[in-house]
């Protein structure tokens, strides 16, 4: 199926990833599970609205001209799906904390820290790869195929 790509601001997504990773690391260091829970809520809102979880920070940085947009043709759906996976993990983490299972809570939080780091530094989005695999097996609702010349999950590059 032909894929209709949209111009996605990868600069906004990278900013969100960097802030998310920093906040979750800070949550662990100062032992503040509520910070991880708030991050989960922001991710939930971002997933529902189709925007970044820390988009307000990106917009502030843009207004201050510290950062500029990096528009790359891409599919927004896999990124949204990946954020949804993050929400599930952080929701699980919050439930674990509430149930008095802090080790499980932090393990789930660290899974998100690891996946975010892989995306931020390695340019590989595991949630997007899962989305595209589901597309490959023809699962209903997973309609978007990877952009041309891109391995499922890989961050696309700017066209020539």
């Amino acid at each position: 199926m032909a894929t209709q790509l949209k111009a996605i601001d990868h600069s906004a997504m990278q900013t969100s990833r960097a802030v998310r990773m920093g906040v979750l690391l800070a949550a662990f260091v100062v032992n503040a599970p509520w910070l991880a829970a708030i991050t989960g809520v922001l991710m939930l809102v971002g997933t529902a609205r189709g925007r970044g979880d820390f988009g307000f920070i990106y917009r502030a940085l843009r207004r201050a001209r510290w950062i500029s947009p990096d528009l790359i043709p891409d599919n927004p759906e896999p990124h949204r799906f990946a954020m949804g996976i993050g929400v599930v993990f952080l929701a699980g983490s919050t439930l674990a904390f509430l149930a008095g299972l802090p080790i499980l809570g932090w393990v789930l939080t660290w899974v998100i820290i690891g996946l975010t780091a892989l995306n931020l530094f390695g340019g590989f989005c595991v949630g997007c790869a899962v989305y595209y695999w589901m597309n490959r097996v023809g699962l209903r609702g997973f309609v978007k195929a990877p952009p041309p010349g891109v391995i499922p999950g890989q961050r696309p590059s700017r066209p020539d």
Binding site: P147, P148, G149, V150, S157, R158, P159, D160
Partner: peptide, 10 residues
């Protein structure tokens, strides 16, 4: 590589 890979060509 892949024909659609921009950094490969560039």
């Amino acid at each position: 590589t892949d024909p659609g890979c921009a950094p490969c060509h560039a």
